[in-house]
Amino acid sequence: MAELSAFGFRQRLTVLHALDARVKLAALMALSTAALAAGPTGLVPATVLAAGAFYQTGVTPLRAAAEMRYFLLLLAMVWLARGLSSPGDPLITWGGFAVTHQGLAAGGLLCWRWLLIALLGLSLCATTRSAHIRAAVAWFLRPLPGPTAHQVGTMIGLLLRFIPVILTQAKETTDALRARAIKNRRNPLRRLRYMTLPLLRRTFLTADRLALAMAARSFGDRRTPHPWQMNYRDWAALITVGTVCAVMISV
């Protein structure tokens, strides 16, 4: 079975890998929020920071582009749509349509922001164990009412764990249907029904067995807390990110 993503966690000796997951998550939230409010000049320091973070993941730009191909295609479509739909000075005119300078600039800025946020998010995933991300999310959710933070953390963990399982089950179901000539069925709704019902049944059965297995391993309201440790590097990273965010918004 192949590795699911180039952006899965890989152990390396970098500053980003060594940072506290809470710091990385807080930095992602702060930089993403600032990026949505920043102009082109403000995005430059954040882009430098994101490029540095991406370099530390060890993923090559080509591999990253291949992994993000659908996202990049979506961004290209957004850019084109903004170019076509925004009023302004026409750059290219074809039939009744015109691509405007202002539209391309606005679309470019939007795509730049989203690419920046995506790169930061993927850098977080590639340099942080998912268990640490889960623990950081739970830590940030502590003050909120509702399910306990560790229950939310467990839910996130189970989601990450079972997405590949469900995808494998979907592929097995599809293969079994193809082996029995599902392609000969013309009605797409019927084909969808034959695909989804067994998959849903298997997924619910898996969930049922999982709940039983978790109970058998003493899952309850309390667990060993995650051992957090903030050091000088984490504080330095927080100050750097805070400064960059302030610059992004002010320029």
């Binding site: 998912s130 268990a131 898996t206 058998a216 391993r217 003493s218 060993t224």
Partner: peptide
């Protein structure tokens, strides 16, 4: 359990083995 796939809850081997002891609130 018979179906090991449904019993494994951790995202990594280490996380999964730690699940039970963490539920027992060990240090």
């Amino acid at each position: 359990f018979q179906d090991a796939e449904s019993q494994i809850v951790g995202e990594t081997v280490r996380d999964d083995i730690a699940f039970g002891p963490e539920n027992l609130c060990w240090s």
